[in-house]
Design a protein around this nucleic acid. Sequence first.
DNA 1: CATGAAATTATGATCAA
DNA 2: TTGATCATAATTTCATG
Lengths: 151, 151
Amino acid sequence: MEDIDRRIVTLLARDGRMSFTDLARETGLSVSAVHQRVRRLEKRGVIRSYAALIDHDAVGLPLTAFVSIKPIDPSAPDDAPERLEHLTAIEACHSVAGDESYILKVRVPSPNALELLLQQIRAAANVATRTTIVLSTPYEYRTPDLTGDAS
Amino acid sequence: MEDIDRRIVTLLARDGRMSFTDLARETGLSVSAVHQRVRRLEKRGVIRSYAALIDHDAVGLPLTAFVSIKPIDPSAPDDAPERLEHLTAIEACHSVAGDESYILKVRVPSPNALELLLQQIRAAANVATRTTIVLSTPYEYRTPDLTGDAS
DNA sequence: CATGAAATTATGATCAA
DNA sequence: TTGATCATAATTTCATG
């Protein structure tokens, strides 16, 4: 991927509503050239989608947790992601190496709702759960710097 | 928060570039009424920002991991988030309950880069690390359904 | 990749409920 | 306070070189 594309992706990752006009100014390209590149990045799947990032507190989902799951029957087919997909409280599902098989990130209104969700998860996927409660989130959804990568 | 606002937030969380015209059509309001509400949601911080969601594989960061950290000196002031903020490979930092104090989510190009990053984390924050490698991600960045909450 | 024109959208003032 | 209508500015989008 070219340098200009990395620049465009970084800018849009930081401000998903930046106008083509502004992108053009920032990159030194014409509006239509940027437009073309963005469309290509979308088509290639480099840019997956655009999203508004919301304040989960403000929206009634103040409790975040990580739920690690482990199959109760290790010989059963491992289709936990599909079995859990309908639970919209689950924001993310990562297959991981280690003792447990998946890490889920969940958002709920209250401890009660978390308890209920855990029951649903266990029932739907036939797994044992281990839950880590998030107390606060100093930062989240940060964007990598794709230009001049200093880790 | 009103029902229409929940609707607007949900729509924008799913498509951050949806036009006011489309939002108006979906909500049954006029364009300017939606415009007003979106601006208010932004001002109140319900909508924090907008972002393009990128394909980390396509962008040269195919390796994701969760890094749990624990202070080596528990009596030292706990300012790990600030000490780690400059490491742009860290996408998120959550303070958590349990044996460890923070969970970090990191994105790097390679195992080598991960090793280097872990050294930097340990040095910068004076912590011990425990790393869980992500093998694959069935889904991520999903949006809660704020209307008619079925968890 | 740039230019320029046409279509669409964003924005704010004003008025009404 | 909230929403509708309207006018204007800005942006998106596309054809062409």
